[in-house]
Design a protein around this nucleic acid. Structure first.
Lengths: 206, 206, 206, 206
DNA sequence: GATGAATGAGTTTTCATTCAT
DNA sequence: GATGAATGAAAACTCATTCAT
């Protein structure tokens, strides 16, 4: 069996085990067994547990970013809200379809020290860039001019992405919640909030 | 030295090590050393690594819920937005003050299998209950009548809490972001969003 | 059983295994078993295979140097030839009594890379210093004045020590050769050679 | 490329790796890579690591013995001292020219258990035979009659060879010491010693 | 003649956990 | 109440060796 194929099988197995057991609790023995190969072959192809995990993280991060990019892109040319909606739907669909991959990214990589946390941060930065540009675009479409300071937009994007991540966990854990419903709830809320802020209906602690 | 005090010292040490290394990577040796006691004593008082971790999770969860409850309670009698604001501020202040405890709850316990995930879910449920009741109260104050279906309120609360958690990580990781600023951004956004939804300015995919 | 005693047992076992199998071929399992303890205890006390080997080398080197020093010292006050003879006899007696220790020093440590080779080199330097000073003393006693250039003395000392090491291997391998006989042969030869050189009866390639 | 050539390349690579890393630490992977062939080919030609090492030892031992034989032979017909000098020079020149081969013979094979130690012993026996016969010849030339008992001659030869081996290591390790200088120092010393013994100027413990 | 693909067996090392005192 | 001494079990990783092509 050619190397490239075997490698993907190993990554599949590794994502599943890492996602379910966690990085430290996952054993190379179990991964090799699930992949249907011997341990030395895993080491021959992927060098070490750390590199194997890194390869998983990179693959899953790229897949997720691609999915979101495609979701947004499918509505390119339409208004910002449709593009955001496309991205959200794609995000929830992807995390629902690959729960182990999502667990690796969101549940494991973030907490396993620098090389991996950085990789996840880079992925999140890509998504944040999408969201940020869509917020700015929405503001332009609504008022022709961004009224929100850049720093606040960054915070909003972060909040939106955080909410989405949390809802993805929710939808993955609770079978009665569909990705579509989660996306709709979040979109309605977010769009209302954005609109309100742009029209000056924010809240003031005083 | 009385047992209760020793136990708290052990928990302090354990939270610090668990929070920084992760559950699996943390070693009982290191925890005992940091606590300044011998390993057998840790076992005498806390029985096993699993129980020790459970005790950490329970203590930190209770402390966080207490902090939020107090933050909300300090504005009891005032309007729902002030109470939500009080809870948010307390949440961000607490996570900033006890980053290791927050790492144990948010970064570790959630991904370490049933007994702990359940404990964290219970804690989050308490916080969600607060938030849900405040959203309902806000709706009453605004229209005398909750216009939002229960299911949507649950989703909104979840989104709000998820956003808060994500912003807490952000504020912990990026020193230039204060808890207060994160809280204010989120509050402005959330309140505008809630108000918009209540007034029927939501977004519709069609 | 107190730690210090256990440690010596472990070193005894390790010297035996390292000496017979070689550094790489020796297994920590076998060492622990011969020492009558579990492997983790070996690691608890001696940290790693490398450190364990280092401890063996240091112990055996010190023992050998001490033996030679004592052999030389027992004839202190007497003439240089008696002192050299004392050192040689002690050297052969020691290597015959502790063949595994000698194998560790001469057969293994020298070829196992820097930290160990350096340790053996230091030991040999001590012995070389003895021999060198005895050669110089002999020259003084014979002629009141060292006629041999320093560089040649260094080479002679080296040759003498090398011959002794080789004869020690020989005596260890061939039971019919006693340490005393080896020492006597070498001493007769060396003393005749030294005397000849000092009296100008050396050999010239031309 | 013909088999014989390929085989020599493999042996070249193996001698280099074995000499530098040691028998156990050397890996067949590294040897195959350095030889520029695939591992199965190494096995096809040389069967196993053990046989490969054996082939290295035999080749290097033969080369060394040949070199010494040639060195001695170049002075055949001359007096014994010239022949010994020729052998010594050749020995030091050869070990300096092929340090890895010398390391395999002197540093590794001797300590790797029976098959190899025996091979090295056989090589040394050949060299010892040269030296022994030269000592006897020298005695004849000087007195017409060997005054030294056979057993002592064996010891002397051994000491001489041991000294030479040790000086070869020295010259290999310390660049400021040339093979020629080492050979001269040893030759002067040895010849003076031999002459002294033959003339009854030995040393007596009493 | 030559190799890419693959593995069984063994290595060093770590860790949660328990006694005897 | 507290600890020094000790270990069973398992982890990551390596290596000599073999097939199918």
């Amino acid at each position: 069996m050619p190397r490239a194929v075997r490698e993907q099988q190993m990554l599949d197995a590794a994502v599943r085990i890492f996602g379910r057991r966690g990085y430290r609790a996952a054993s190379m023995d179990e991964i090799a067994e699930l992949a249907g190969v011997s341990k030395p072959l895993v080491y021959l192809y992927l060098n070490s547990k750390e590199e194997l995990f890194g390869a998983c993280v990179r693959r899953e991060a790229a897949a997720l970013v691609d999915a979101v990019r495609e979701g947004v892109g499918a509505a390119s040319g339409e208004r910002a809200d449709r593009q955001l909606w496309g991205g959200l739907r794609a995000f929830f669909a992807h995390t629902a379809e690959r729960p182990d991959g999502w667990a690796v990214l969101h549940g494991q990589a973030r907490t396993q020290g620098e090389p991996f946390a950085a990789e996840v941060a880079a992925m999140r930065a890509e998504v944040l860039a999408f969201v940020t540009s869509l917020i700015v675009a929405a503001a332009r479409e609504a008022h022709g001019d961004p009224l929100l300071p850049e720093r606040e937009v960054a915070g909003l994007a972060r909040a939106l992405v955080g909410a989405a991540e949390s809802l993805a966990d929710w939808a993955n854990a609770d079978a009665s919640v569909s990705g579509k419903e989660a996306a709709a709830t979040l979109m309605r809320f977010a769009w209302a909030g954005l609109g309100g802020l742009l029209e000056g209906r924010g809240w003031d602690p005083a």
